[in-house]
């Protein structure tokens, strides 16, 4: 075999191994959101258990934790007590907002009455808001700073450490 073939073969193999090695540590479920660093898409959605709409822009001036979730999502059940507790502890300094995704309002009310209802929960009919935020699955949480810019996104149920770290980013 000639040296040219060996050289090109070696370069191509090394490049492929390098790409595979670099991708080994990646979580296949995690996709970076292109929305981090840009203005949060605004919306005004109907609040669960009320006829009133809640406008995201009305929270401008304080950090917002925007959590997409659903009652049929088991990991959301695990995450719910943490969010409820954090919302109560923050005492309004950080605004928590839930957006319910592909769900039924009766089930949402039942869930919140049983498991705690500490912040506004909104209904996203036909998932248009979820699509605008690039939501693929639930739970997904966006952290929005006081100027309305998305500073972080978290996929899946959060630990208290992950919640704190991202809230701090939104408070800067």
């Amino acid at each position: 075999m000639s040296r040219t073939v060996l050289l090109f073969g070696g370069i191509i193999t090394a490049a492929l191994i390098a790409i595979l090695y670099a991708a080994l540590g990646n979580d296949p479920q995690h996709i970076d959101s292109p929305l981090v660093g840009v203005a949060a898409p605004n919306f005004a959605l109907k609040q669960v258990g009320s006829a009133a709409n809640v406008d995201l822009a009305s929270f401008r001036g304080r950090p917002v934790v925007l959590n997409f979730w659903a009652t049929w999502c088991r990991p959301c059940w695990e995450e719910h007590p943490l969010l409820t507790q954090a919302a109560q502890l923050s005492d309004g300094r950080v605004q928590f907002v839930g957006v319910v995704f592909q769900d039924d309002e009766k089930k949402i009310i039942q869930f919140l009455q049983q498991r705690g209802w500490a912040y506004p929960t909104l209904v996203d009919e036909r998932g248009k808001t979820a699509i605008a935020y690039g939501v693929g699955g639930v739970p997904e949480t966006f952290f929005i700073d006081k100027n309305g810019t998305i500073v972080a996104k978290f996929d899946g149920p959060m630990s208290s450490e992950a919640l704190m770290t991202n809230v701090q980013k939104a408070m800067r």
């Binding site: 605004n42 959605l45 109907k46 709409n53």
Partner: peptide, 16 residues
């Protein structure tokens, strides 16, 4: 009432 409620409701629009 339903008309007023739906008028206030706003989802992110592609146009923006």
């Amino acid at each position: 009432f339903a008309l007023l409620a739906s008028a206030q409701m706003r989802v992110p629009d592609a146009e923006q």
